[in-house]
Design a protein around this nucleic acid. Sequence first.
DNA 1: AGCCAGGTTGCGG
DNA 2: CCGCAACATGGC
Length: 274
Amino acid sequence: MRTHRIPVQVFSLDHTLRCGQVFRWQKRGDKWIGIVKNSIISVEQEGDSLIAKSYLTPEDIASYFRLDDDMEKVYRQIGKDKLMKEVIARYRGLRLVRQDPWECLISYVCSINNRIPQIVRMIQNLSARFGEEICDGVYGFPGPEKLADASHDELKKCKLGFRVDWILDVAKKVCEGELQLEKLRNMDYQSAKRELLKVNGVGDKVADCVLLYSLDKLEAFPVDVHIRRVVQREYLKNGGISDKRIGEWARQYFGEYAGYAQQYLFHYERTKEM
DNA sequence: AGCCAGGTTGCGG
DNA sequence: CCGCAACATGGC
């Protein structure tokens, strides 16, 4: 375990970890505790520095927090109107993070018709029951084999509800190489999405989440109930537009960084009253 | 009690 | 292509 001081610019650890994209980070005092690449990490922000205690290299940490993204360029492209400019100012420094595709996929299958605290609980349950203990009481996320080998009943004990069969199916396809997640990283957005949509339990929204949060497809624009609400209220006021069309509209309107616009709008819609 | 939650599927128009 | 109900779980 080593301590690293990593310089950052246009970065907000709090916004990044509170905006709803990740499920396994916890804040204790000024420090965020999380699990990245199956190892525990503690991170704290001091102005333009990130202080990280971790077994990971600074390069791994920089990659996870997408420090390679040019945020000024992102803001120039998605700051198309008054609302977006305000939202950008409010959550300045919020970055997407580069999650592990497998964990991300299972996490967002868990998110289907569900609430965030419950999603967090499911992921904890899966980890505690099937994952490796990496410190005392801290469990890594189980690999595809672990879940593929699990029984229906064992999985049900993790409170996954009707998502059990989907998760089993996803795990088996990843295990058998029928779905090769890392291969999708080198494909274009549409082709990669077609591959994900072949899997039972993965629809438009989950596919977009996996592509955006773990496979570097920044044009992916996941449309959920919150995004639908904010987009219809602020942009497409003539209602009655399908989720698919909202996504297509967003890619046209916001451009190649539509996914960043999505995350800012999502966070805005969920916290604007606070 | 009834509705809703970071949706998806399978059905009938 | 569209709209619709069902799906397990839990909080309000």
